[in-house]
Simulated scan of single mutants.
Amino acid sequence: MVENRRGSRVVLFVYAAVIAIAGVMGFILGSARPRGLDPQLFGVIQLPPTPLGVALYGMVTVAVGLGFFLWLVVYVSRRYDDASVE
């Protein structure tokens, strides 16, 4: 049981680190101010082409995309029955 909690903490730490890296990279990209930069969150919410806007875009996009797959893994793993494997 303790090992399972440690594993979950590692996964959450890596998840948070990837989101933070996406934010830093978005800030750097936004600071460069390339032409035609027009971030739209999910194609609906218009964000300003500033370093903070691009960082927010990167963080939310990565958090939702990666979070969905992490949720899917947890969902499937909880419904997998180890006793029925032959």
Rank of each mutant, 00 (worst) to 15 (best):
M1I: 15
V2T: 10
V2Y: 08
V2M: 11
V2H: 05
E3T: 12
R5D: 14
R5Q: 15
R5A: 14
R6F: 14
S8F: 11
R9G: 14
R9I: 15
L12V: 15
F13L: 14
F13V: 13
V14T: 07
V14N: 02
Y15S: 07
A17I: 01
V18H: 10
V18R: 08
I21E: 11
A22T: 01
G23E: 02
V24C: 08
M25A: 13
G26N: 06
G26V: 02
I28G: 14
I28Y: 11
I28W: 11
I28R: 05
I28V: 12
S31G: 10
A32F: 12
R33C: 14
R33S: 04
R33F: 09
R33M: 07
P34H: 01
P34S: 02
P34R: 02
G36E: 01
G36P: 03
L37R: 03
D38W: 11
D38V: 12
P39Q: 01
Q40M: 11
L41Q: 01
F42C: 00
G43H: 04
G43V: 00
V44G: 14
V44D: 08
Q46W: 09
Q46C: 13
P48K: 09
P49W: 07
P49C: 08
T50A: 00
T50N: 04
T50Y: 04
P51H: 00
P51N: 02
P51T: 00
L52K: 15
G53C: 03
V54I: 05
A55I: 05
Y57H: 05
Y57M: 00
G58C: 03
G58L: 02
G58Y: 07
M59E: 07
V60Y: 05
T61M: 02
T61K: 05
T61A: 07
V62L: 08
L66F: 06
L66N: 01
L66H: 09
G67H: 09
G67T: 03
F68Q: 10
F68D: 10
F68P: 08
F69T: 08
F69E: 04
F69A: 06
L70A: 06
W71M: 04
W71N: 04
W71H: 01
L72Y: 11
L72I: 07
L72T: 12
L72Q: 14
V74E: 12
V76C: 12
V76R: 15
R78M: 14
R78P: 00
R78Q: 08
R79Y: 04
R79C: 02
R79K: 06
Y80M: 09
Y80G: 14
Y80F: 08
D81V: 11
D82N: 10
D82K: 14
A83H: 09
A83W: 09
A83L: 12
V85I: 15
